[in-house]
Design a protein around this nucleic acid. Structure first.
Lengths: 138, 138
DNA sequence: CTTGACCCTGTAGTTCCTACAGGGTGCATA
DNA sequence: TATGCACCCTGTAGGAACTACAGGGTCAAG
């Protein structure tokens, strides 16, 4: 029931270097070592790393992951903090979906109207550029 | 009809340092200078920078932004090239929409399960925690 | 004519990894 | 037993895309 770093990496979809990096920055504790000085991990580390990877995959930056981890380490704490983190993140994701959806229709309109000729007729930049000729953007 | 770098930054939601950085790496041309050696921008730069920021915000790396821009800079180029590039970008945009949509439902499921109280009761932490007590993840 | 907001160049730091270099370990196989 | 070979170790450097100074000029207002 002990993993090498490579096995842990495979189990969590993490590169070995990334695991060592997480250890270096204190996101993972220093693990036990074998007689040959290999890192040795157990189920607890597997869980913690899975958590980290999943949060990263959802776009949480490492310091937020760290906050989340320290929250879960203290189970008596108020849930509102976690909720706020996720809520902010959801809002951002939704904004991006809106933008990308707009970009998608612009791109497919561009493709529909592209029948040969030169770029001068294609107007790709105009199609992609935001409607911000006169003020603020984003 | 001329902006300082600060005004351009405000208009596009870009930090001054970032604009200078884009200039340094050749994404923006070196602008005219005032008598006092201040950078002076016009509408064209505003459009170009807006485009860059939007593409960046949607997750396109600078290399791809550069490709798109260089395409539009050479207005004599064959439209088929543009078409192919736009098609690639459309595919990528669609992939990103799919990813973000999945992320959104995960996040809102997370939020739905949060009923207040302490972290011990909060499902967000658990939802993020490993679905992998006995093997591989992700 | 000075104050404060802005601009200049240049360099160094940040985040989140990723990639070596130069070497040790462990296990199977000839 | 030796010899591969895959894997592990430390340490450092690189890379993408910024971001933050330091140390200094410029400019409009009071």
């Amino acid at each position: 029931m002990a993993f090498t770093i490579g096995e842990l990496g495979k189990a969590t979809g993490t590169k070995v270097e990334t695991i060592r990096y997480y250890e270096r920055i204190g996101l993972l504790a220093k693990p036990e070592r074998t007689s040959g000085n290999y890192r040795s991990y157990g189920k607890a580390e597997l869980g913690r790393l899975s958590f980290i990877r999943r949060a990263r995959d959802l776009g949480f930056p490492l310091d937020q992951v760290r906050a989340l981890l320290s929250l879960s380490d203290d189970r008596t704490r108020d849930c509102a903090t976690v909720d706020a983190l996720a809520r902010d993140h959801l809002a951002e994701v939704e904004r991006k979906i809106v933008d990308l959806t707009a970009l998608r229709s612009e791109l497919s309109a561009l493709l529909d109207s592209c029948e040969g000729g030169t770029v001068g007729d294609c107007r790709i930049i105009e199609a992609l550029a935001p409607p911000a000729t006169s003020g603020e953007t984003l």
